[in-house]
Design a protein around this nucleic acid. Structure first.
Lengths: 141, 141
DNA sequence: GATTAAATTGAAATTCTTTTTCAGAATAGT
DNA sequence: ACTATTCTGAAAAAGAATTTCAATTTAATC
């Protein structure tokens, strides 16, 4: 956990940026939360522990993390952009339209087929998002 | 083409709404354009032929079409929501991040695998979106 | 054709999220 | 310590989606 933050701070310094206490705190909270947070969500979490940190700093920190590849933004269709840590393996999402919960899955065969489709269309894949919307186990009860 | 509009107008009337000349014009333009249009895009198209029609009407007409299932909204990550006609078979998208062009594809095996994933997770699928971002054939040259 | 109730329209205003601006504070390098 | 640059927070701006409201249009009835 600390190693990751160290690595990020190092990368920041190497790219001519400064490593600030404030940003470090935001990064800490982000990685400790885990989930699929909107800027607003993370801001609320940060505010609890560090009341002096402002919304814009949280917003900018997420942008920085995204640029460095440590966070990924994802649009679940609820109006606000969510961010998740990009430390784990690539995965796709099952999004419950009732409770809003987001589940993750990884299906290698789908990945393979996507590459196939891309090749057929002479398309060079940079990224992809697969969102399956529906009703989760809990909400079906 | 006219049949479709007739059908839509009929459905509208049946659900207690009125069929107006203005909305009909917007619907005509929408179906004649085809593509993946933002509200703004369609508004511009409509404005050319019918200068008196306002933005809000275009916006609301797209909403109505979406409710009835004749249009589908899609988020390609460029900040504005796109709408496409929902008359053709379901398909997914290849989105060129260079030129913004959107290509469509349908891969039955991916659909099957998605159902499999859903079943494994006791998830009842309502909808899904698969967007592959990358560089299209044209832009690779 | 006139009458009436309800839906539709366009412009403006509002909401909500994302992004920029700017002056002051913090940081890194000398 | 000194200086240049980055970072921060608040406020403002930008941008898209949505609502409000008075005037108009439409559908149904007389």
């Amino acid at each position: 956990m600390d190693e990751i933050i160290e690595r990020i701070e190092k990368e920041l310094r190497e790219s001519g940026k400064k490593s600030s206490r404030t940003r470090r705190k935001v990064i800490e909270v982000f990685f400790s939360c885990g989930g699929h947070l909107s800027v607003e969500d993370l801001y609320r979490e940060v505010k609890q522990r560090y009341p002096d940190i402002g919304y814009v700093t949280v917003y900018r920190t997420l942008k920085v993390l995204e640029e460095l590849g440590y966070a990924t933004s994802l649009d679940v269709g609820d109006g606000s952009t969510r961010f998740e840590t990009a430390l784990r393996q690539h995965h796709d999402h099952l999004i419950c339209t009732v409770c809003g919960r987001i589940y993750e899955f990884f299906e290698p065969e789908i990945e393979v087929l996507q590459n196939l489709v891309a090749r057929k269309n002479d398309f060079r894949i940079l990224d992809h998002t697969l969102h399956i919307f529906g009703i989760c186990k809990e909400c079906q009860k």
